[in-house]
């Protein structure tokens, strides 16, 4: 595999398509998550075991977080937001495994996630109140703010992608540099910081996505009121 760096190596090619290590790690993470989910939910019982309790606790916590922001659309938004949290957490923590690099340390991945958030915001906004009502909220409270609304939409999505990429790439780089300079076991505190940072960045990314989606849905209601 690869170490952290600004260049993402290509794992293999499928015709003209170059499959990078980031995509391969992503596939591995997806496979691991799906297998874990299948194993954890294969024999769900009314009286749960320890694994079921942990899985149900995690899913319930995410559902309650989404439901606290969007009580009515929680069931629609939960799969997207929860997958963001799970995938970004797993992707961030993948960098701790020797020989693997965090997919979120690749700008292509974070950009893809940010684009998905950008599109999902509009998707849920339009789905909630219709296209006309959704577009109208860009003209609120004044039509002169429309360019700023567009700039805001773009910059916050770019910020999402760059924030996650920058944090994870810098952590990997810092751990590598300390390992090269100080030697074995010295980067352990940095790796512990990596764990915390991985959880925090995943939470921030997912929560911001949730807030953006909630803003789009609630802006339709604001438009209706006016």
């Amino acid at each position: 595999m690869i170490g952290p760096g600004l260049l993402i190596p290509i794992a293999f090619r499928i015709g003209p398509l170059a499959i990078t290590q980031t995509v391969v790690v992503t596939w591995l993470l997806m496979l691991a998550l799906v297998i874990f989910s299948w194993l954890a939910t294969r024999r769900l019982r009314v009286t749960p075991g320890p694994l079921q309790v942990a899985v149900e606790g995690a899913v319930t916590a995410m559902d309650e977080a989404v439901r606290s922001v969007l009580p009515e659309q929680a069931s629609q938004v939960l799969p997207f937001i929860a997958t963001l949290w799970i995938f970004i957490t797993a992707a961030n923590l993948a960098g701790l495994i020797p020989g693997l690099a965090s997919p979120t340390a690749d700008l292509s991945t974070t950009t893809a996630l940010a684009v998905l958030v950008f599109l999902s915001v509009h998707w849920f906004g339009i789905r909630s109140g219709g296209l006309r009502a959704y577009l109208r909220h860009y003209l609120q409270p004044s039509v002169f703010l429309f360019p700023f609304q567009i700039i805001s939409e773009i910059t916050r999505s770019v910020a999402l992608a760059v924030r996650l990429f920058g944090n994870m790439m810098s952590l990997d780089m810092a751990a590598l540099l300390i390992l090269l300079v100080a030697g074995f076991l010295v980067p352990v505190p940095i790796l512990m910081l990596h764990v915390i940072e991985a959880l925090v960045q995943a939470y921030i990314f997912g929560m911001l996505a949730l807030i953006y989606i909630a803003g789009a849905i609630q802006s339709r209601e604001t438009t209706k009121d006016t």
């Binding site: 499959i19 989910s37 998905l116």
Partner: peptide
């Protein structure tokens, strides 16, 4: 480095992952 193939595949991967987790987990 920015790779458009990775960008598109990550979008697809994530959407697939959403479907899989929705089916096998949520």
């Amino acid at each position: 480095q920015y790779d458009w193939t990775t960008f598109v595949l990550e979008i697809i991967n994530f959407l697939v992952l959403v479907w899989l987790l929705k089916h096998f987990l949520y």
